[in-house]
């Protein structure tokens, strides 16, 4: 504007030339387009993921029937006699995720109630960063910790715990997803308006009664979203199970023994040098598609639940 008024100072100090405005409008429009393209790139990423998984999995399902894929109870893609029962890997994944949730759901709920309803603001400000630090630890470090610290420790009092097992990775994943569950559910609890709490206090409720009967029901959809997102993370967690859960693909029934999960299998196959297009190469995309579908359903459900509580308050 300053340089502008110089140019036209002779005529009218407040007049802005047409050319200048035109240029500004052009810059404005160009930037708008660039920013829009950057934002829509995220859709391209999703499209890329879906395209890769579906097209490679289609090659796989041209050779293996989908009924066998879902019902066979063995998974031996690199053996002579090949079986492709994904349920073996799914059972391992579900076992570790279930153990993780058994650890993280009660602990996460208690912690988030404690932080949102009980703790002094200063305490809360001090605790939340520490929880964030846990979520900053690389997953491969948690894997090392599970295999070479927690498993030997547990073996001293759980007889029959194998070196590779599902119990320890499950517990470690539970600790990993804990900060996440706490932050999402605490967020939901704090979104419950204070007037509801004050109403409860006026009726003589204690803080605990207010938490259990007013805040939790009020934040229910958000807390559920936290559990579902935690589950989705546990299902997709890779390095801990790849390091500490073993590589044997079998229906997981005993958490004290090792079994492969979907993610651990993908890592195991990726480490070898498989020719592009071979059936074993295609299995990792079929397994990846299964994983993507499971986590996608969880994520969408959680997104919808979180939006719901945001709309209520």
């Amino acid at each position: 504007m300053v340089s502008q008024s110089h140019a036209t100072a002779a005529a009218d100090p407040f007049e802005v030339s047409e050319a200048f405005l035109k240029r500004r409008r052009l810059v404005d429009l160009t930037m708008r387009c660039i920013l829009f393209l950057a934002a829509s790139l995220s859709i391209l990423v999703t499209a890329g993921i879906v395209y890769v998984l579906v097209s490679e999995a289609a090659h796989f399902f041209a050779q293996v029937s989908i009924v066998d894929f879902l019902t066979d109870t063995q998974w031996t893609p690199v053996f002579q006699e090949k079986h492709f029962g994904i349920m073996t890997l799914v059972s391992g994944t579900l076992m570790t995720s279930a153990i993780a949730l058994i650890v993280a759901v009660p602990a996460g709920t208690i912690l988030s109630i404690y932080l949102s309803e009980f703790a002094q603001p200063q305490v809360r400000e001090a605790i939340k960063p520490i929880l964030e630090l846990i979520s900053g630890v690389p997953t491969v470090a948690f894997g090392y910790f599970a295999l070479l610290f927690v498993t030997p420790l547990f073996q001293t009092f759980i007889p029959g715990l194998s070196g590779f097992n599902l119990l320890v990775p499950g517990i470690v994943i539970g600790i990993m997803i804990l900060p996440f569950i706490v932050s999402v559910s605490e967020d939901a609890m704090r979104a419950v308006p204070n007037s509801l709490r004050e109403g409860a206090y006026a009726l003589g409720f204690t803080r605990l009664q207010t938490s259990v009967r007013v805040v939790i029901p009020g934040a229910f959809s958000g807390i559920t979203a936290a559990y579902i997102l935690g589950m989705s993370r546990a299902v997709g967690e890779t390095m801990v199970v790849a390091i500490a859960a073993g590589q044997q693909a079998k229906i997981a029934v005993n958490p004290l023994e090792g079994a492969a999960t979907i993610t651990a299998y993908i890592v195991q196959i990726s480490l070898g040098d498989l020719p592009h297009g071979s059936i074993a190469y295609l299995t990792i995309f079929a397994a990846g598609l299964t994983l993507f579908v499971i986590t996608f359903l969880f994520n969408i459900l959680a997104f919808w639940l979180r939006r719901k509580y945001r709309e209520v308050y």
């Binding site: 934002a39 829509s40 995220s42 859709i43 990423v45 999703t46 890329g48 993921i49 395209y51 890769v52 998984l53 097209s55 490679e56 997102l229 989705s232 993370r233 299902v235 997709g236 967690e237 890779t238 993610t263 993908i266 890592v267 990726s270 990792i284 995309f285 990846g288 994983l291 993507f292 986590t295 996608f296 969880f298 994520n299 969408i300 959680a302 997104f303």
Partner: peptide, 27 residues
């Protein structure tokens, strides 16, 4: 469109990292 992008970003944040690896391998 905005709605779609928003749901999409929130979903991408929850996609397991290994899936990005498969995207990179395949594409």
């Amino acid at each position: 469109i905005t709605d779609l992008i928003e749901i999409n970003v929130s979903n991408l944040a929850g996609v397991p990292s290994i899936i990005y690896g498969l995207l990179a391998l395949g594409l």
